[in-house]
Design a protein around this nucleic acid. Sequence first.
DNA 1: CCCAATTCTTTACGCGCGTAAATTTTTACT
DNA 2: AGTAAAAATTTACGCGCGTAAAGAATTGGG
Lengths: 343, 343
Amino acid sequence: MDGDKIRNMEEFASVSGLSRPTLSKYFHDPESVRTSTRKRIEAALEQYDYRPNIYAMNQNRRLTKNIGIVVPFLADPFFAEIARNIENLVTESGYRPILLNSQGSPENEIDNLDSLRSIKPAGVLFAPLGRESDRSAIESFCRDVPTVLFDSNIDGMGEAFVGSDNYSFVSQTVEYLSRTGEPPSFFEMRNPANPNANKRRHAYVKMMERLGLEPHVIRIEGSGWGFEEIGRQGGFKVLEEKLLPTDTVLCSNDRLAIGFLSACFERGVSVGRVDGCDLRVASHDDHPFSRFTCPSLTTAAHDYTEVSDRSVETLLRLIESGGRFERREEELFAAHLIMRNSA
Amino acid sequence: MDGDKIRNMEEFASVSGLSRPTLSKYFHDPESVRTSTRKRIEAALEQYDYRPNIYAMNQNRRLTKNIGIVVPFLADPFFAEIARNIENLVTESGYRPILLNSQGSPENEIDNLDSLRSIKPAGVLFAPLGRESDRSAIESFCRDVPTVLFDSNIDGMGEAFVGSDNYSFVSQTVEYLSRTGEPPSFFEMRNPANPNANKRRHAYVKMMERLGLEPHVIRIEGSGWGFEEIGRQGGFKVLEEKLLPTDTVLCSNDRLAIGFLSACFERGVSVGRVDGCDLRVASHDDHPFSRFTCPSLTTAAHDYTEVSDRSVETLLRLIESGGRFERREEELFAAHLIMRNSA
DNA sequence: CCCAATTCTTTACGCGCGTAAATTTTTACT
DNA sequence: AGTAAAAATTTACGCGCGTAAAGAATTGGG
């Protein structure tokens, strides 16, 4: 560093011996200039540590290098983990990730989209709240901004959807549970916000019928995003009122299961797949904490890596295609069963 | 909405019957124009839904309405929770929060600060990684940008620090544990990245000595941010090698405790404060999941609300003071003990 | 009703960079 | 060495808004 403070690209152009338009090209895409030129620029960059003013860069550019990432509830480690992966991929691709958290509220979700709109992002990766989302607001957003949905699908919204195949989750857990012991009841919230929950229930019923078993769905009350507490209260209720026809429970998702397990523990109900246990509990998602529950949770895992990779890959392809696909793409990844000690 | 699309402030000025400079003032601070004018603007805003271009707004302004929030590891629900609180407060204060995640890596931390610097934020709320942070880079950042540290302190950095009083945490847990049963050993990582961990160990030793008890610190190997797994492996080791002089363990933080509890469960070691249990386990932080562990975790809780409130309040005051305080402020909040079933 | 203080309008310039077009220089290849 | 293609330079304009200064309009208080 020469201590000389470079004020703008013009000055940096003169000290680096190049022209401003060339530098502009370089900052837009380093690969777009000759290797020798790139080296010169990067050498000068070392010396003078100049950085272009992003505001000036973006104001007069059609599409920026920003990519918005909107998740419904960041305090859920599942989304934190996905967001983490996606952020890294976006950065590696030379874009700037902008992470926005809807915090379970439809108003925040719209605010986030509005705020993204005014940032003119190259594209947006968007995991909607689901049932509570404002469909028309999202529709209008997707018309203006190239958007790929992930995690939860809303029919027709965005140019693509990347997520997990709920049927794959449930078929594996149901198959495994009914093969190795009594068939499972399905434990879920009565009014799940997330569309995946509904698909999982349907898959459960269908799968049970296919196996010639009687489906049994337990739907507990509760709203909001405090799934663990809801699962816990539901667990108490289920245990007290003896709502289980068999010794096996399949929770709609791991967070409910975490609460359910804590209820079992507190009531002295032993959970596990070994002989002598009162109950078997399994679930879906492979939540980051599910290996640390007591007992550790048998669950069907998202392919976090595939979902993140493909979401980003799809968005980049969408951006290159000018923001529109011929027809909406939909890609679902299979789950894989993770056998731990709870079932 | 009239369908008419307003392209810039000039156009919006003409349709709203006001001058552009007045509108500019309004968008900078709605209170700075006469009430009647404000009403007129807001009415027009309803009709035409125009939003100023943020890039153009900020490029030529000294300080923006952006507030950066940097957390060391967002996949840790503790930070997710704090970040959530802070984001809300920042928004309520009329600023735009920009949440950045260092993901446990010092390189990311510096990248985040660099990226914030180029955004010219009004101020930054910064929770550093700790031991691994690049001191000099942070120092230089704090010289340029009004910064308030939170959660973990680095001496002399930033204009203020807001966090929890580690001594208060540990003194309460140690006092409680030794009053109600055998005195605790202290369970921690050998090389904790976070400075709070060191303070907690010191506090433990001091507190034990004050009570006339023999301190006993167990330091387990492990690096990175996978605390649960480290606690779990450490737990196995402790149980196998019988490293505990008493039946009581105090973990440095809840995430270690979550792992430790899972190890106990797996080895059939019963944990709890009731008679007949093999072990008592307590911890610090009141991690969002600590009420769902098996057994639920007795812990000393951060005052999340106070820490978030005060951090934001302090930063806003710092911004109003022109970015500098007479002398560095430091504010620590006391913990409160939360008695659950593990001890 | 007058006057001073406040608020708004008019005018004008600049911010830092994107970007287009025409020109010159460099590169790669025969 | 000659040539076409590729890359860089020069020139010039515009983006949308901040902001300063000077004047006009509005306000409120006596």
